[in-house]
Amino acid sequence: MRNITGKQLIVGGAVLAVLIILPLLIPPFGQHVVILTLIFAMCGVAWNIMGGYAGMFSFGQAAFFGIGAYTSSFLLMTFNVSPWIGLVAGGILSSLMAAAIGYPCSKLRGHYFAIASIAFAEIVRIFFNNWEMVGAAEGLTIPMRQESLANFTFNSSKLPYCYIILAFVLFALAVCRLVSTSKMGYYFRAIKESHEVAQVLGVNVVRYRLYAIMISAFLTSMAGTFYAQYILYIDPASVMVLAISVQIVLVAMLGGANTVLGPVVGAAILIPLSEYSRAWLGYKGTGFDMIIYGVLITAISMYRPNGVWGALAGVVRREK
């Protein structure tokens, strides 16, 4: 794997600087869009580890997002556990769930895996939708607490949320890069190309597929906990629906699956586009923004199926 060059370091540093300074200059709605973008960027990076590298197209990431959101909120409301501990607890729970579902699905590929992931996420959603202990369909309203980093609560400004989720995304990127440059990353790619060949070469396909799913679930769950602490209200219809899973796949695909930074680029294009079109067109509740969203998905699949990252990276490399 190629090392990070000086040029890439400069470009990366510049993008990071923009992301740090930008939230200071824009109005709250803009900051909200930045936060949502980074949430989905993180989920996209997580999806990429199992989808882009290991070739398992999951359409059920919303389950892990939701489990992350519910675990921290439930622990906070019932046992007064800090959301930071809830963050880790949710991640571990999601990883365990991922292993529990990933193991029986270890022989499934392609379309079959995609359908199984949808089935799994729908089971989780229906279960939460009827589970009285976690508020069933009414969901959970997370109580406001004293504003502090330790409480993961900020009432007066969205800025701290911007920087926390930015740090999360950087963490996810670091994990993704670590995975992609390690032996594990090569195993993932081998599995993606062919189960049989990977098996013959001595890769434990079942185990490495589980690793990919578990890492992905942990990161997605972290984003879910963040979402719960940021919005302070969760219900199955907002954190566990198929629409979220699809949006995560789209972010990864639009940016370019199989590249570390692709999903971040994808989120930076897709989320502002969908948020602003909702703000402008969706206010009447006619769903006109969703019509455009549908057209957008279709158009991306037809005209940019390999993502925009390839084109962008080509420009950066040529400048060298």
Partner: peptide
């Protein structure tokens, strides 16, 4: 393959 999976999602939402 991913684009083939996603494209009909777009049609369905539309």
């Amino acid at each position: 393959p991913l684009a083939q999976l996603v494209v009909t999602f777009g049609v369905s939402i539309f």
